[in-house]
Design a protein around this nucleic acid. Structure first.
Length: 470
RNA sequence: GGCGCCUUGGCGGAGUAGUUACGCAGCGGUCUGCAAAACCGCGUACACGGGUGCAAAUCCCGUAGGUGCCUCCA
């Protein structure tokens, strides 16, 4: 497949080192608070990447890290740790906070129908690996020690500015942050931070340099190496990571191993809400709970994510979510035809096997062309248009089933479940049909309401009712 | 100050030179116990000003507005 590559600034074919295996590392969440819709947008897009690789016959090995140790709130010496901050806010230890939100995140992955990553390593479970990598860097002469910790000397890594196309001369040091005057270069960053003297942190570990905690970037270098090797096929993360976090990861990993760190870099753009970026201060940190409280399904949310391209700055709004929910109902009604006897209109051509095959090919091509999900949904909508309820030929049988399986495999929208209906519900449907034949409208309407309250949508046709689960 | 990106119909959102993208919402009609659905039809979009081309939403220059990063951030 072809995917935009931040490293080369163009769309490149993905060429795995050991095809059909593809190694993928994703910068995961820092578990100090509830993730908002913007976080989930990003992660859903990596799930889509993995699903696409699978569908095209490759064997992805996907690792997403869980950052459960402090990234500092600011780069200044008095920086406060996010986890420690969260802990103070909630009257818990940093460990409790990390556990709670880590569990919540894992639950979210399931609720949103993610493929399960092969590994979800936590930073706190990999202290030895991180310390070892820092030692390697020290032995190779890439580090120096100052009052508050061990730092990476970026001037020793000449390619440092290349990845993010940074103009180091022109960057305004300390534009918004106090400068650490002990640092040799403005872009130098901490590998190991020493605990402040006389202060007991919730999270701290012994190290060759003293008691402290790992820097903000070393965990990704250490854990990706452990699980996926020195060179990754694909490394993914938010667009915001390009200038600092990923530049630093490259510097650390390539200095330590002497090999290229990742051949392909995928970055997702951020979303806006009311034309603003998501920020706690703006009060627009919408969560999955908010979505469900308004009566929208998480499948509808996933569809909303797919409606825009991962590299564009997309927008989230309740109106858009409403539109996605309505669109999803159409897909569900289409999918549920699979198990229903449908009389089609002789005047129109029924859905043909060829149409299903053509659609699947077109969708595969769109996905493999830099994950063009809007194009994918266009193709799916086109097919639904052809397969209106009077137009499905049951002879397509197995082809229809396998088409739906394909759609669910790549999009994760659970369309297969649209035809899940219990025997009890089936009986109610039959009872409603009998009531309609007897022109007992009030009873028929009662039964319809009963089914709708259970998530069963009903559409009457001249040849009987059809239904779908939404 | 530096480095980027964006501006498409009511909303969302593809498309990078030459056909209606598509979806949601809306409008008119057929059908209909009701509600839907289905079917037929409707909108003639591409920030503004120049330029190049037979041809530009699509390339180039400029203007305006917006926005991202340079700090933890998806």
């Amino acid at each position: 497949m072809r995917l935009y590559n931040t490293l080369t600034k163009q769309i490149d074919e993905i060429v795995p080192l050991q095809a059909p295996n593809v190694t993928i590392y994703t910068c995961g969440p820092t578990v100090y608070d509830y993730p908002h819709v913007g976080n989930w947008f990003t992660f859903i897009r990596y799930d889509l990447l993995v699903r696409t690789l699978k569908a095209s016959g490759q064997t992805p090995k996907w690792v997403m890290n869980i950052t459960d140790v402090g990234h500092l709130v600011s780069d200044a010496d008095d920086g406060e740790d996010k986890l420690e901050k969260g802990a103070k806010r909630e009257g818990k230890t940093a460990w409790d906070v990390a556990k709670f939100y880590g569990d919540y995140f894992n639950e979210g992955l399931k609720r949103l129908n993610f493929l399960e990553p092969d590994y979800l390593p936590k930073a706190t479970d990999h202290l030895p690996e991180q310390i070892e990598m820092i030692q390697t860097l020290q032995e190779k002469g890439f580090t120096y020690l100052i009052d508050d910790g061990v730092y990476y000397d970026t001037s020793k890594f000449p390619k440092y500015a290349d990845f993010a196309q940074l103009d180091l001369e022109e960057q305004q040091a300390g534009a918004r942050v106090e400068v650490n005057h002990q640092k040799r270069n403005q872009t130098d960053f901490a590998l190991w931070k020493l605990s402040p003297q006389g202060q007991q942190r919730d999270m701290e570990w012994d190290s060759p340099w003293g008691k402290g905690f790992p820097g903000w970037h070393i965990e990704c270098s250490a854990m990706s190496r452990k699980y996926l090797g020195d060179t990754l096929d694909i490394h993914s993360g938010g667009i915001d990571h390009i200038p600092v976090h990923h530049s630093n990861e490259i510097a650390q990993s390539e200095a330590a191993t002497g090999k290229p760190f990742a051949n392909h870099w995928m970055h997702t753009n951020h979303i806006l809400i009311n034309d603003e970026k998501i920020a706690k201060s703006a009060g627009n940190g919408i969560t999955l709970e908010d979505i469900e409280a308004k009566g929208y399904s998480l499948e509808a949310f996933r569809l909303h994510v797919l409606e825009s391209h991962y590299r564009s700055q997309s927008k989230f709004s309740w109106d858009s979510l409403e539109a996605a929910q309505n669109r999803l109902r159409g897909y569900q009604a289409f999918a549920a035809l699979r198990y229903q006897t449908v009389v089609y209109d002789e005047a129109r051509h029924p859905l043909q096997y060829e149409s299903l095959a053509t659609s699947q090919i077109a969708i595969t091509e769109a996905l493999e062309n830099d994950l063009n999900t809007p194009k994918v949904l266009f193709e799916l909508s086109e097919l639904c248009e052809q397969a209106t309820l009077r137009n499905v030929d049951n002879n397509t049988g197995d082809a229809f089933v396998s088409y739906l399986q394909f759609i669910d495999a790549v999009l994760g929208l659970n369309l297969g479940q649209a035809s899940d209906i219990s025997n009890v519900q089936k009986d109610i449907l039959d009872a409603r049909e009998r009531a309609r034949l007897a022109k007992d409208w009030s009873k028929a309407d009662d039964l319809r309401r009963q089914l709708e309250s259970q998530g069963i949508g009903i559409r009457d046709t001249q040849h009987g009712a059809i239904w779908f689960r939404s």
